[in-house]
Structures are given as structure tokens and as C-alpha cells.
Design a protein around this nucleic acid. Structure first.
Length: 220
DNA sequence: AACTCGGGGCA
DNA sequence: TGCCCAGAGTT
């Protein structure tokens, strides 16, 4: 796979940042505690943000601490979150993670990547979201959308998430990492879609490797 | 790298 | 119906 000039990547990212300068956070991820954010983020896997918000609104009214959620029990929790995809396994993970938080972390959600990923149901993406949103620790979370966008721009080949994180963090100012996560996802959903990407409506297209390849393919 | 987990929304 | 979703864990 040929390398795509770094200069092009930087221009593309600049265009996207400008395009989404005023984007609002549609998911409303303003939870008051790290624990709430952790639970909400675990639930968000393979489940739309709208559904997660509906579920957490109900859930956190009844239980929003590790102790309370454990008290709810796996069945009780499942009943609350059943409308999220993969709910049974998530309920199990959230209970187990809550117990671990109480036993190993003095009841507080850990604020380090290596510790967060030890929690069941928490992978690299979720951990970075928690670090960034709950603790204000700069991090870029790479999900399927961000990964796809980065791959198409020519930033990385997409096979190594850590590489994508690295490339993005290198090119985006540290103070903008948390916001970049949002607008990269937003772009991946609205324009740089998996199926039919709307390159015609994308301001980064002139600097995008994927767009270039598509154009070349059509001209032949 | 491929595969499974899975309910609900939407075309 | 069929396709998709702001992933993680296992093989």
C-alpha cells in the first residue's frame, strides 16, 4: 500500500475540522460521574446513542453507583437495558466491572488506560472515551467510524487501532482531541459512510486518498 | 483475521 | 424482510 502524503492528510483534517466547527454533541454525553459515563459508554457498543440515552435516563434514576447497580442484580439490570443490543452480556459485564471497581479501585472508576481495559466490557475505545470525557485526560477514541475515515484519508491502513490513534493525535492539537473524536464519528456517519460515501459533498475529498482512487477508477 | 454476541429502527 | 448500529471477547 502506497503512502499518502502527510501534507494531504493534514489538509483533509483541517477541512473536516472547519466543516464541523459548530457541531453539537448529539449524544449528550454529559453525565455527572465517571461511573455513569462508563456504564453509558459500555452500553453504546453496537447500539445507537439515542437508545442508550433513553435507557440511561431510566437506569440512573434508580441506580447510578456501583453499589446500587450491584444491588439491582444482573436480572434487574438486564430488565433496564434490554433494549440495547447485546444486553445480556453487557449486564453481566457491568455487574462484574462494578464489583471490580469496589474491590480493587476503592469504589472509584480508575483514570488510567491500562486499568480501565481490565474491566470486563471495557476495550480500548471505551477506555479512551472515559479518560477523555470523564477525567479530561486528552485521548482519541477510535471506533469503526473513525477507523474507516482515517483509512480512507490515507492516515493508516486501518488494521491497527493504536496506529490510527497515534496518527490522529500527532496531527490534531492536544486540546482538540476530545472534540475531534466527535466530529470524526459524525463525519463517518453522515458523509464518509461505510456503504455509499458522499464524496461529492465532502470538503476533504480533494485531499483524500479514497476519493482520488474512486475518481481514477471512474475515469478508466 | 474471522467470528459471535443481539434487540430495535428504518427502508 | 434485510441491513445497520459511537465494540469487546474468544478462537
Amino acid at each position: 500500500m502506497m503512502n499518502w502524503p502527510q501534507e494531504q492528510c493534514d489538509k483533509a483534517l483541517g477541512e473536516l475540522r472547519e466543516l464541523y466547527r459548530d457541531i453539537e454533541d448529539k449524544s449528550g454525553l454529559e453525565f455527572s460521574t465517571p461511573y455513569q459515563l462508563l456504564v453509558a459508554t459500555i452500553l453504546s457498543a453496537q447500539c445507537t446513542d439515542v437508545r442508550v440515552n433513553k435507557v440511561t435516563a431510566e437506569l440512573f434514576g434508580k441506580a447510578d453507583t456501583p453499589e446500587a447497580v450491584i444491588e439491582l442484580g444482573e436480572d434487574g439490570l438486564l430488565e433496564e437495558i434490554k433494549s440495547c443490543g447485546l444486553a445480556p452480556s453487557k449486564a453481566k459485564n457491568i455487574i462484574a466491572a462494578s464489583r471490580l471497581i469496589l474491590s480493587d479501585y476503592d469504589g472509584e472508576v480508575p483514570d488510567e488506560l491500562e486499568e480501565l481495559v481490565k474491566l470486563p466490557g471495557v476495550g480500548r475505545k471505551t477506555a479512551n472515551v472515559v479518560l477523555s470525557q470523564a477525567f479530561g485526560i486528552p485521548a482519541i477514541a477510535v471506533d469503526t467510524h473513525v477507523n474507516r475515515v482515517a483509512k480512507r484519508l490515507g492516515l493508516a491502513d486501518g488494521s491497527n487501532v493504536q496506529k490510527v490513534e497515534q496518527e490522529l493525535m500527532q496531527r490534531i492539537p492536544r486540546e482538540n482531541w476530545a472534540k475531534a473524536h466527535h466530529w470524526l464519528i459524525w463525519h463517518g456517519r453522515q458523509i464518509c459512510k461505510a456503504r455509499k460515501p458522499d464524496c461529492a459533498g465532502c470538503p476533504a475529498a480533494p485531499y483524500c486518498r479514497y476519493a482520488r482512487e474512486q475518481a481514477e477508477a471512474e475515469s478508466e
